[in-house]
Amino acid sequence: MRSATSLDDALRILRDERRTPVAGATDLYVALNFGTLEQKRFLDIWAVEELRGISERGDMLVLGALATYTSLIRSPLVARRLPMLVEAARQVGGVQIQNRGTVGGNIANGSPAGDSLPVLAAADAVVVLRSVDGERRVLLTQYYTGYRATVMRPDELIVAIEVPPVEGKQWFRKVGTRAAQAISKIVMAGVRSSHPRIAFGSVAPTVVRVSRTERVLASTGDIDEGAGVLAEEIAPIDDIRSTAEYRLRVATNLLRRFWAETS
């Protein structure tokens, strides 16, 4: 484990050595405890203060990669611009996890059940990646290439998430295995506007935007038709937490609830 105290420092280390960045370590410690952690070399970026802030730049809401769930919950800016992210952050783990877990970490970990990911996908959020060679921006929906696989290079670091203005009513629902301290069996975020934007977690190897469903809802406004398309568009699986059948049925129920509550 090495520690970086500045962003430049971190990027130089990542250029020279293969290391896995670690922030709150809330996912990493779980893997370590189970003996399933493959990586051996780490870079602790927790002290890189410049990655911590939440701000507005132009019309973008900028979330530093190290913004914790607690800071998202407490931020008036996030509450005003992206209330569904506050809702998602509140439902992550317990207070200890909320204090340590970061939005950048949630993206980097890439679990399809990550609670913040549908929110960011529905908000058309952009992941800002930086290396010593420069910076690039990738839409979150194009960031994942498969189960826990991403476009990020080993020398890059997630430095921020940029969220453009979100027009329309925001909606979020997490369905966990119990009322708190739970992993999502299905999680949905939606934005109701002339072109609705809808994303699901835990129904595919990555977080997904259901673009066919969105298009049908945008063009017809018919929720029955939308629910029918959704059932064809997602193909969840059985696992130790739930079943494909349940996930499919609840996904369409959530879509209908979203539509009814945001009309």
Binding site: V30, F34, T177, R178, A179, A180, Q181, A182, I183, I240, R241
Partner: peptide
Amino acid sequence: TLTNYTIPTTLD
């Protein structure tokens, strides 16, 4: 695991 075998929390 205590993550996947879920006993009630205070909120349950």
